[in-house]
């Protein structure tokens, strides 16, 4: 309990400081610390799968994405600042937000006891999926539709980011040019870390069927392992016109939908797996989806193609 109080206090202070920070860099550094603390909070809430995702996406990829933006904006003339709300308005907003937080806190205390839960039905039906990890069971079987749609959302987000390409940049290499560092500390890390990271990602993906872990966590790690050499200028992303790149990010959702439709034909329900086939099919989907999502996540961090950089 003391540990929880400490954790909560640290989280709130860091969040508050990040929200109030004057400099964008400070705000993002604090945000990364916030992600680290949230990871620990998820462990305390017995949500280890979520903790892994938070570590990989919340603290890792989101932080790096925001840092990249800070870096790019620093080289550009800062846009004319929008008029901030006046002191009276700020106070009003603060009171409103405090009231919402207070109401929300009160409601958290008023949630029914014992809490309604689907833990028992999940436990009862998990054997039908041959999986050991209940969260993977929910993601890949009971609520597989959400996972499928989410993979489509991630793909769509890449389309959206590309759709913002300025005139003359279409089809080119995504992202800003990175300064090339053939040696030095970044290059060292960029060469040494990826092999290790790929092994770890495969491990996380593999254990995900029966223990905490799975495709999103693995995909986020793989994305980071591609982004690292990119940041060091050691690899150039393929141009967005590249057909294979587009197929790579699309193949995961396509296979997922195809297997879902096969279930509709064979088993009479979309995303139903034939008895005994659940686990192998889920593993196939997860494996292909990991590749697609990893590339898509990395492309989301890399960003929009630049006019300056057509190679």
């Amino acid at each position: 309990m003391i540990a929880d109080l400490l954790l909560v206090a640290a989280m709130l202070i860091v969040a508050l400081a990040s929200m109030l920070a004057r400099q964008a860099f400070t705000a993002v550094a604090l945000f990364i610390a916030y992600g680290l603390l949230l990871t620990l909070a998820w462990v305390r809430l017995a949500a280890v799968d979520v903790a892994m995702t938070e570590a990989a996406i919340g603290a890792g990829l989101s932080g790096v994405l925001l840092l990249g933006a800070v870096r790019r904006l620093a080289t550009q003339a800062s846009p004319p600042p929008e008029q901030p709300p006046g002191p009276a308005m700020t106070l009003l907003i603060a009171l409103g937000c405090a009231a919402l937080a207070a109401a929300l806190g009160a409601v958290v205390l008023l949630l029914p006891n014992p809490a309604p839960s689907l833990a028992a039905p999940v436990a009862a039906n998990l054997p039908a999926t041959d999986l050991g990890n209940p969260v993977t069971g929910v993601l890949m079987s009971f609520r597989a539709l959400d996972t499928l749609l989410e993979s489509a959302v991630v793909l769509l987000a890449v389309v959206c980011v590309w759709a913002l390409t300025p005139e003359g940049g279409w089809g080119g290499v995504p992202g800003a040019a990175q300064p090339v560092q053939r040696d030095g500390p970044l290059a060292l890390l960029a060469r040494a870390l990826p092999p290790l990271g790929i092994v770890i990602a495969m491990h996380i993906l593999w254990v995900g069927a029966d223990a905490p872990g799975g495709k999103f966590q693995a995909a986020a790690i793989l994305a980071a392992m591609w982004l690292l050499p990119w940041m060091a200028g050691l690899v150039t992303p393929p141009p967005i016109a590249a057909r294979w790149l587009r197929w790579t990010i699309a193949i995961g959702p396509v296979v997922f939908i195809a297997i879902g439709l096969a279930g509709a034909v064979i088993e009479g329900a979309f995303l139903a797996y034939p008895p005994g086939w659940a686990k192998p099919l889920i593993l196939i989907i997860e494996f292909i989806l990991t590749a697609s999502i990893a590339v898509a996540l990395a492309l989301l961090v890399i960003g929009t193609p630049d006019t300056a950089q057509r190679r």
Binding site: A46, T53, L66, L118, A119, P134, A157, C160, V161
Partner: peptide, 24 residues
């Protein structure tokens, strides 16, 4: 289970969607 797996899975999905929104 240490927690209800259904909302845990939902949070996981939500985290990825929130990341995509941030990137956008």
């Amino acid at each position: 289970f240490g927690g209800d797996p259904v909302p845990q899975a939902i949070i996981l999905t939500g985290l990825v969607v929130a990341f995509a929104a941030t990137a956008l």
